[in-house]
Amino acid sequence: MKLINLPKKICLYILVIGILLFTGYPFVYMIMTSFKSMKGFFLDPFSLFSGSLTLENYSTVFDMGIGSYFTNSLIITVLSVLLVVFISALASYPLSRIKFKLNRPLFLLFIAGMMVPMHATLIPIFLLTQNMGLYDSLTALLGPYIAFSLPISIFILTQFMGELPKELEEAAQLDGANHWNIFWKILFPNLAPAISTIVIYNFLYLWTEFIFALTLITDTGSMTLPLGLQDFYGEFTVNVPGLMAALVLASLPVIAVFIIAQERVVKGLTGGSVKG
């Protein structure tokens, strides 16, 4: 029995090693290169361990201002995610708990937004941002970031709220509580699982968002991390280890969050895409 399975086992391990090399090697290359000196890299770009490892690239990247890109990304991402949670929870309350004529059409209108390619809005948003005097500031991103996170968030929250038991607010209704109190004091505290899903989903989307940042920001001081990386690319063409250090720093926070909260992250990501 064991012997018959052996060839199968070997095939399985060849497959696993193949996939592991394909997915893992680029990371190994990125990390190892980020610790090489320029000289060490050009002498031997392929070795995993070069004789002397150095942290010099990381200090170079900090000197070039990756900290500011980082802060900008953090500010805009956190702010957008907080607002998205609040605004989408507000909208999902009547959509899921109150019967009114426009219930269904409104819900469909919102979730249709999931399918809109950003490009279909790019030029008007670019002009609008200029007209509002927001161009080249971090605030310029707030509107599009919230707008493009809303559909999925409203979708998840409306579904989730719709499944909460009716009894939850009936007692409060008997006591004459108004809708705001029912929403804020009774329903909102019960939304934690759905909110963690939309926080993770939107955080990952916004942390890596590029095209709106590219069209709405040119000023180095307002650049987000993906935009900053592109900027480094322009300046670092030959300093491969330096660029790799920047890539490691940019990827680290998300990867750390994933390793700490693996199951939550996976749930957050699939919750956003698995439907019915």
């Binding site: 590029f210 991390l225 890539l247 990867i255």
Partner: peptide
């Protein structure tokens, strides 16, 4: 589980440059 999933967590710009 972790390694297979890593690529999806990097920003597309970082992936492109790498």
């Amino acid at each position: 589980n972790v390694v297979f999933f890593l690529p999806y967590l990097m920003s597309t710009i970082a992936i492109g440059l790498l």
